[in-house]
Write a protein that binds this DNA or RNA. Structure first.
Length: 120
RNA sequence: UCAGAUAGUCGGAUGGCUGCCUUUGUCCAUUUUGGGCGGGGGAGGAAAGUCCGGGCUCCACGGAAACAUGGGGCCGUGUAACACCCGGCGGGGGUGACCCCAGGGAAAGUGCCACAGAAAGCAGACCGCCGGCGCGCUUUGCUCGUCGGCAAGGGUGAAAGGGUGCGGUAAGAGCGCACCGCGCCGCCGGCAACGGUGGCGGCAAGGCAAACCCCACCAGGAGCAAGACCAAGUAGGGGUGGCGAGGGCCUAAGUGCAGGCUCAGGUCAGGUUUCCGAGGCUGCCACUCGGGUCGGUCGCGCGAGGCGUUCGGUGACGGACGUCCCAGAUGAAUGGCCAUCCCCUGCCUCGGCAGGGACAGAACCCGGCUUACAGACUAUCUGACGCC
């Protein structure tokens, strides 16, 4: 899994991508732009704005998103898409199993799970 | 035992699986990028607020003086420095341990002193006190009027032109005296702030300087988005060289142009002005170097460093010796999940169950200050009660 870090990527996702809002987080998805070769690993960006809380809360939210992306998107999501995870305030109090289930549901509703693991 | 005071320390622990940043060893591949297997390190006491003081970087900077602006202001230490620390002094609070204080000058000037009150700054007379005179009456006196003396008592206020007591007086008043306070001069102690004491003065001189102000002292500007380099990029910029120059007068009928003579101007020295001294620049052309930029690299962590021992000092702190290397991200690492233990809260069948773990996240680095903080521990001291 590689990280999206450029501002232009975040702007592109928010303008052109599809968006789905869940209880604890939001997910934005858009295809990898044409100039970039698709690797076997998906690319993921993380956002935890000041709406989540102070610096301590934002750090914790971003780390939990990072860990979620490692365990869900990196393994099960299609690598020809770019993903941005946006934290909501409720992410701080949810259990990790709950969050994993929610992210899998979101990917499923957008039909972005890998075909090779379609039995899930 | 209970209630407190001060100083200080800590601020969850251990393990498993799996990640991230950084550094290093080795092997492999290699044009570069890299890959495998190991090792080391990886948030705080406040990392916070960004309020002071410094280091560092760039810019500016020849010298001197005056003014302005800002700043803090008991005294003596400590320190790179401070508005910080330590030790004292003075004032205030507490039974006490101890705590608090923006603490120079109000007998230089200007200003202000709300409300209340008669009067608030060359004081004042509302209720009052005392005396003389007049009228009346219930006549050792009282009421009213008037002319004077006065400010003790009452009342207002943050503050009413020293306080308490005695004398004095018609009533009073520093009018006189004693003590206290105040001021001046001396002596003693102290480096000093200041304290003690003697004499004199005689109540003049109210408060506010976080009102202007006065006094002595201190102070260039901007900040790591500083700044440097690389890549890309081509003009508005920089450097070097050459030519030209501003004012006045003359030649010219005259504006311009051109020529000649003469003078030395304008601007720039970063808060302002003045003086002295030495210089630079302006427009065009040629050559040359090369921006802005959230691209990358450096700056970037061996430091006013941590720990220990010892010596000096009441102490802050300083010296010597030994020892250690201890975060460096940049859409920003320092984690995610689980288990056991610890602590807190709730419930009951008293041993379990359930929930929870303060404030808070480095961004160039240090020294302070301020603010937030569940709780735990240590030492010394104070007061009360009890026992020996």
């Amino acid at each position: 899994m590689s990280r999206l870090k450029k501002r232009e990527d975040f702007v592109r996702l928010s303008k052109t991508g599809r968006r789905i809002a869940m209880r604890h987080l939001s997910l934005q998805v858009a295809p990898v732009p044409p100039g970039i070769t698709v690797s076997s690993e998906p690319r993921v960006g993380l956002t935890a704005s000041r709406r989540v809380g102070g610096a301590v809360q934002r750090n914790r939210a971003r780390r939990r998103l990072y860990s979620l992306a490692e365990q869900v998107i990196n393994l099960y999501a299609r690598p020809d898409q770019d993903y941005v995870l946006i934290a909501r305030r409720e992410i701080l109090t949810a259990s990790f199993g709950e969050l994993k289930l929610e992210l899998e549901q979101a990917l499923n509703r957008l039909n972005l799970l890998r075909r090779t693991s379609g039995n899930r």
